[in-house]
C-alpha cells in the first residue's frame, strides 16, 4: 500500500545512510575500545586524557590522520598505490548490504526491514565480496616499490586465501543445518529449530572463528604485520588517510566476521532459547528489548574475544600458520561437514 517510491527508494536510501554512519562511528570507537580493553588486561588504563575518560580519542586520531603528510614513494605506481586502500576498504562496507540486524519494524506506518537487502544467496555474496580485499593487499604491497612490502603483501594474501577454504567449509556445515543461503533465512531456521546452531555445530564454530581471526590478520595470526617482521608488511609505505583506510578496513573486517559468527552460529537477533523461554522474552519485564540489542551484545562479545586473543597469545611463524590452516583446519572442517551432514540426515529423516 505504501507508495512504491517510499518503499523502494527512500527507505533503502535512509537505511544505507544510517548503517554507513553508524558503522563508521562504531569502527572509530572500536579503536578506542581495543586500546582500553587491552590496557585493562595489561594492568593499566588506556587513553584517558582526550575528553572524559578518553572518549574523544578516536576523533583526535581522525584529525591526526587527516593532517599527516601523504607520502607516495618515489618509484611507486601512483594509480595502483591509490587504488589499493580503496580495494580493501570498499568490499568491507559492501558486505553490510545483506547483513540483518533484527526484525522488521514500522516507522510511521512504513515497514522498515533491519537489512538493506535480503538476497537468497547472501552467504555467497559475503564470501565473494570480501575476497576482493585480497586484491587490494597484493596491489598495495606491489605498488609500494619496496621488496619487503611486496613480500608482506604476498604473505598476507597467501594467508587469507588459505584460510578461506576451511572457513567456507565451516559455513557449509551451517548451510546443511539451515537449508538456505540467505542470512535472514539462517536466523529464522535457528528460531524454528529452537536452538542456536553453535550447539550442534560447535566444531564448525571453532573452525569458523579461528579462520575468521586469521582472515583479519589478527593475533595469533598477525605475522605479516608484526614489527619483528620487517616493520609493517604491505602497509609500510602508506601514511595519512590511506593508512587510515587499511586500519579501518581491518576493524570493519573484524566486525563482519563477528556479525557472521553471530548470525550463523549464535542466532542473530534471537534471545537465548527463543522458543523454550518464549514466555520469559515476551513478558512485560523483557519484551521492550528490541532484537537489535541482542545482536549488538553478541557482536560486542566477539569483538571482546578478538581483543582478548590479542592480549594473550604469541604469534605463529608464517610456515606454522600455513601448517595450521592446511594440515589441521582443512581436514577438521571436512570432517565437520561429514558429521553435520550425517546428523541432519538422521534428525530430519
Amino acid at each position: 500500500m505504501t507508495d512504491p517510491l517510499i518503499r523502494y527508494v527512500v527507505v533503502p536510501l535512509a537505511q544505507t545512510v544510517v548503517i554507513l554512519l553508524v558503522l563508521l562511528g562504531i569502527v572509530a570507537y572500536l579503536t578506542l575500545a581495543e586500546r582500553k580493553v587491552l590496557a585493562w588486561m595489561q594492568v593499566r588504563i588506556g587513553p584517558n586524557r582526550v575528553g572524559p575518560r578518553g572518549l574523544l580519542q578516536p576523533i583526535a586520531d581522525v584529525f591526526k590522520l587527516f593532517a599527516k603528510e601523504d607520502l607516495v614513494p618515489a618509484k611507486a605506481e601512483r594509480f595502483v598505490f591509490l587504488l589499493a586502500p580503496i580495494l580493501i576498504f570498499v568490499p568491507s562496507f559492501l558486505v553490510w548490504a545483506v547483513i540483518p540486524f533484527g526484525e522488521t519494524f514500522t516507522v510511521a506506518g512504513v515497514p522498515v526491514t533491519s537489512f538493506i537487502a535480503d538476497i537468497n544467496i547472501a552467504i555467497l555474496f559475503v564470501l565473494g565480496v570480501s575476497s576482493i580485499a585480497i586484491y587490494g593487499i597484493i596491489l598495495g604491497g606491489w605498488a609500494s616499490n619496496n621488496k619487503f612490502s611486496l613480500m608482506g603483501g604476498l604473505r598476507s594474501a597467501a594467508q587469507l586465501v588459505s584460510y578461506e577454504v576451511p572457513l567456507g567449509f565451516a559455513v557449509v556445515s551451517v548451510l546443511l543445518m539451515s537449508g538456505t543461503l540467505s542470512l535472514v533465512g539462517i536466523v529464522e531456521a535457528q528460531r524454528d529449530a529452537g536452538i542456536w546452531f553453535f550447539i550442534p555445530g560447535i566444531l564448525g564454530f571453532g573452525i569458523y572463528f579461528i579462520c575468521g581471526v586469521a582472515e583479519t590478520n589478527r593475533n595469533p595470526f598477525d605475522l605479516p604485520e608484526a614489527e619483528s617482521e620487517l616493520v609493517g608488511g604491505f602497509h609500510t609505505e602508506y601514511s595519512g588517510m590511506k593508512f587510515a583506510f587499511f586500519f579501518l578496513a581491518e576493524y570493519m573486517n573484524m566486525l563482519v566476521v563477528s556479525s557472521l559468527a553471530v548470525i550463523l552460529f549464535f542466532g542473530g537477533w534471537l534471545p537465548p532459547f527463543p522458543n523454550l523461554l518464549a514466555g520469559l522474552w515476551q513478558s512485560p519485564l523483557l519484551s521492550w528489548i528490541p532484537p537489535f540489542i541482542w545482536y549488538l551484545i553478541k557482536v560486542m562479545i566477539f569483538i571482546f574475544v578478538y581483543i582478548w586473543f590479542r592480549g594473550t597469545f604469541p604469534r605463529y611463524r608464517f610456515d606454522q600458520l600455513m601448517a595450521v590452516g592446511w594440515k589441521w583446519l582443512l581436514p577438521l572442517s571436512l570432517a565437520n561437514v561429514l558429521l553435520v551432514g550425517i546428523g541432519v540426515l538422521v534428525l530430519k529423516g
Partner: peptide, 18 residues
Amino acid sequence: LFKGLAVTGGYLLKRKET
C-alpha cells in the same frame, strides 16, 4: 590456550597500577 586466556581475563577485574 584457555588457561592463558583465564590469566589475562582475570586482570580485567583487578586494580590497575597506573
